[in-house]
Amino acid sequence: MSSLVTVRDLGFKSGPREILSHIDLTIEPGELVSLIGPNGAGKTTLIRAILGLIKPDSGSVTRSPGLSIGYMPQRLVIAPTLPLPVHRFLALGGRVSQAECRQALEEVGAEDIWGTQVSQVSGGEFQRMLLARALLRKPELLVLDEPVQAVDVGGQTELYALIGSLKDSHGCSVLMVSHDLHLVMSATDRVICINGHLCCAGHPEDVSRDPSYLNLFGERAENVALYHHHHDHHHGLDGRVLDGQAENSDSGSGHHHG
């Protein structure tokens, strides 16, 4: 089977500022890919390019023909001036029946909020509601931008478990943006770490030991790492690699920039 999404040498600029450069990635059927990186690393921009909401300045994004994507955006604030029950929110995405909406809400374990106003549901319920709307697309690929945002730690673990089980029951792939590698580690097939450019990619254990990952996430990351390489470059405040300041590198780390 061919890849669902193929990103080749993608670059995106906002004015003179380079948000993303030389990003390559693929998403294979049935795979759970976690996209991690610090704030401002361009994670949401990359997601928007994959969804086709923005055109890259260079490189390409190819989606397999007819690919159905369920998208869960980040930080959705619904105007309190808009009276909107949860079931109506679910039906906004397309032509779906009441029964389908109810089933989707049951699947995410939030059937209680069916008639509740969107402005009154809790953080965790809100994220489940978004997930239900994404499921209504009958997705082959779920794209989740920070799905556990505004959810307490216990709820975060539950949500990640839910996402994992939905992936299995629907047989879909998942591309998930996350801040925290720890929580997603067990369920993730592949981690892609970006900071404007592609820092490292691979199995979660490998990434957690990768010097560029350690450099990005610092102390916190080192707690889970088994050993530590020296990083072979520095990042500027905008995430660009400052090659001129590269310190003595461990050439075995396999992390080079062209």
Binding site: R48, Y71, P73, L76, I78, L82, L92, G93, R133, R137
Partner: peptide
């Protein structure tokens, strides 16, 4: 009506849904 409402709630989500 429906797409306008969807865009009013979240433009990116509505666009991603076509």
């Amino acid at each position: 009506w429906r797409p306008l409402l969807a865009i009013t709630v979240h433009e990116d989500l509505a666009a991603a849904e076509g």
